[in-house]
């Protein structure tokens, strides 16, 4: 079992490192993710549109508001799930 696991892990890791050659270099300013129009739009327009200097907060609470609402619901659900699993009945 351990040998098999090691084999699987090494093969997967080698494939991922091979695929890493196609990624943009670390710290490259010309990487496609940075030069994408949406990224440049967020950096330029988030302060005038949302009035918040921290771009990450503006993204989190304003542009991706639906996502954050769902995430808060995920935390709430996790709390409820642990409560259902572990809390003893108050009799």
């Amino acid at each position: 079992m351990k040998t098999l696991a090691l084999f699987v892990v090494v093969i997967t890791g080698a494939m991922l490192i091979y695929a890493g050659h196609d990624l943009p270099a670390f710290g490259d300013i010309n990487s496609p993710a940075y030069q994408a129009p949406m990224t440049q739009y967020f950096i330029e327009k988030s302060l005038p549109e949302s009035g918040v200097p921290n771009i990450v907060t503006a993204l989190l609470a304003s542009y991706r508001g639906y996502d954050t609402l769902g995430e808060t619901a995920v935390i709430f659900t996790a709390g409820m799930a642990v409560m259902l699993l572990l809390r003893r009945r108050e009799t």
């Binding site: 302060l47 005038p48 549109e49 949302s50 009035g51 918040v52 907060t57 503006a58 609470a61 304003s62 508001g65 954050t68 808060t72 935390i75 709430f76 996790a78 709390g79």
Partner: peptide, 24 residues
Amino acid sequence: DPALVSKYLIDLVEIGIGITVLAV
């Protein structure tokens, strides 16, 4: 100023997130 309204509402939303996270 619509940007100012947005700023205060983002603060309100952050307070909501904070209350849920601390309670959970």
